[in-house]
Computed example of a mutant assay.
Amino acid sequence: MAQVTIGNSEFDRDTAVVRRAPGHYEADLSAGWTIIHAVNGGYLLALMGRALGDALPHPDPFSVTAHYLTASVPGPAVIRTEVVRTGRTMSTGTATLVQFEEDGSEVERLRVLAAYGDLDTLTDDVRTTAKPPAIPPYEHCLGTENAPGGQPAVPGSTAIADRLTIRLDPATCGWAVGAPSGNGEMRGWFGLADGRDPDPLSLLLTVDALPPTAFEIGLTGWVPTVELTTHIRRRPAPGPLRVAITTRNLAGGFLEEDAEVWDSADRLVAQSRQLARAPRSASTLA
Rank of each mutant, 00 (worst) to 15 (best):
T144V: 11
G178T: 08
A176K: 05
E145N: 12
P170Q: 08
G143E: 02
A153T: 15
A179N: 05
Y138V: 05
V177K: 00
R167H: 15
P137Q: 03
L164S: 01
I166T: 03
N146T: 07
I160G: 01
G149L: 01
G156T: 12
T144H: 09
A161T: 12
G150R: 04
L168D: 04
G182N: 08
S157V: 13
D169T: 04
A147R: 08
H140P: 00
L168G: 05
W175R: 00
D169P: 05
T172L: 07
D162H: 07
Q151D: 05
P170L: 10
P170A: 11
R163L: 14
G143I: 01
C141Y: 08
T165G: 04
Q151L: 07
P148E: 10
V154T: 12
V154M: 06
A161E: 13
L142V: 13
Y138S: 01
S181C: 09
A176E: 08
P180A: 10
A147V: 01
L164D: 03
G178H: 09
H140V: 00
S181P: 06
S181H: 10
P136Q: 07
A161H: 10
A161D: 09
V154S: 05
P170T: 10
T172Q: 03
C173T: 15
H140Y: 07
E145T: 13
E139L: 04
G174M: 06
T172V: 14
A153L: 06
G182K: 10
A147L: 05
S181F: 14
P152H: 13
G182H: 09
R163E: 11
G143F: 02
P152S: 15
A153H: 07
T165P: 00
I160M: 11
T144R: 13
A171I: 02
P136E: 03
R163P: 02
S181D: 12
A176D: 06
A153S: 15
G150V: 05
A171W: 05
D169K: 03
V177S: 06
C173N: 02
A176F: 13
G178P: 05
G174L: 06
L164H: 03
C141S: 04
I166F: 11
I166Y: 10
G149R: 00
A171H: 10
A147F: 13
Y138D: 03
V154I: 08
E139R: 10
A153R: 02
G182T: 07
A161V: 14
G178S: 08
G178I: 06
A147P: 00
P170V: 09
P148V: 12
A176M: 09
D169E: 10
L164Q: 05
R163Q: 14
G143V: 01
R167E: 09
A153G: 15
V177W: 11
A179V: 06
I166D: 05
D169S: 06
